[in-house]
């Protein structure tokens, strides 16, 4: 009986170790397979300026999804960003606009979504037409200097 108790405790120990790895994979490193309770929407950007995979998608600052893929659209030659939105957020109108923003002064990039006025809502596979690219500091400084010189 005592051996059996030892075996049970060791079994629990090994399973706890596997669960810890699983929790680290899913919760901490965001390693996820096909996530069923989300839907995908897409947007095109002229410049993503440092946006990365797994970045937040927010509505009014509250997270409603994550960026899952960033690629080049080979026809339009712009960046194509794939976002997974939580399925309970099913009220985003089709004319919503997305914007790449920076959290804090030094923080990472995230996508801010603003809802439009249409009745029709975004569904799986929709493309968000209205997008605003990331603010690239070098371009901004370049413009500023150019304006100064032309004055």
């Amino acid at each position: 009986m005592r051996t059996r108790n030892v075996e049970i405790l060791v079994g629990i120990f090994l399973v706890a170790g596997m669960l810890a790895v699983l929790a680290l994979a899913v919760n901490v490193s965001g390693y996820s397979g096909a996530n069923s309770d989300t839907y995908k929407v897409y947007a095109h950007f002229d410049n993503i300026g440092g946006l990365t995979n797994k970045a937040e998608v927010t509505l009014a600052g509250v997270q409603i999804g994550t960026v899952t893929d960033i690629s080049i659209d080979s026809q339009l030659l712009v960046a194509k960003v794939e976002m997974e939105i939580f399925s309970e957020v099913n009220y985003l109108s089709i004319d919503s606009s997305v914007q790449i923003l920076t959290s804090g002064l030094l923080g990472g990039k995230y996508i801010g979504l603003s809802v439009g006025a249409e009745e029709e809502v975004l569904v799986d596979g929709s493309l968000i037409e209205d997008s605003q690219s990331a603010l690239v500091l070098e371009e901004l400084i370049g413009k500023f200097l150019f304006d100064k010189v032309s004055d």
């Binding site: 680290l24 994979a25 490193s29 965001g30 797994k54 970045a55 509250v62 997270q63 994550t66």
Partner: peptide
């Protein structure tokens, strides 16, 4: 909490 976990998941690779 949303940013806490998503910034973590953005930076930690499995």
């Amino acid at each position: 909490s949303g940013s806490f976990w998503s910034v973590m998941q953005q930076s930690v690779d499995f």
